[in-house]
Each structure stands twice: as structure tokens, then as C-alpha cells.
Amino acid sequence: MPVTTLLDREIHVDDEGFLTVYDEWDEALGAELANQIGIEMTDEHWSLIRFLREDFKEKGETATTRRVQSAGGVPTKRQFELFPKKPAKKMAYIAGLPKPHGCV
């Protein structure tokens, strides 16, 4: 499993760079991950990332865009505006979670 360094910390990631250890993440690191992929975080971005973190803790899997809409209350359209082009993967990355596995 690769190890990479961000904010002078050693972080475990998969081959693509998604974090693999839930507890290695905190919001300072999340901000740095967002910075790495060119997303400027606002409160609205953070509320989605926090939802993903909580939902993962509860369900053991990363929420899909559909779930972020139905359980998180943010329409898919808005998710595309906040995290352009590939919202599911970008949200998962910033939240330090694996890519979602669900189809919808």
C-alpha cells in the first residue's frame, strides 16, 4: 500500500491516491486534499464532506451522489456545481474515503 506525504504527514493511500485509513483524516488534511485537486472549499463544500464522513462511519461505505441527495439533502445538480465533472469521486477524495461502489 503506497504511503504519501501531505502537510508533512505520512498518509496511507491506494494506487490512485485515495486515503485508505479513515482516522488519518482531519479537516486540515481535507483542505489540503481539496487544494491538491483545485477545489476552493466553502461552508457548503464542508457540510457535504462532513455528511460523507458521518455517513461512512455509520454505513461503512461511501455515499453515492444519489445518497448525498436523498439522505444528505443536497440535489445532484448542486453537487456537480460544487465539485465539477466528477462529484462522487472528488467528494470521496476530499473526505478521505474510498471511491463509492454503488451504481446509482
Binding site: 506525504t5 491516491g17 486534499l33 491538491q36 465539477p84 466528477k86
Partner: peptide
């Protein structure tokens, strides 16, 4: 060397 591993989302 030391470049972090970051996914390529194909934005560029």
C-alpha cells in the same frame, strides 16, 4: 521525489 500521490480526475 516527494510529490504527493493525487488522483487524476482528468480536469485538464
Amino acid at each position: 521525489k516527494n510529490a504527493p500521490i493525487v488522483p487524476n480526475f482528468g480536469d485538464d
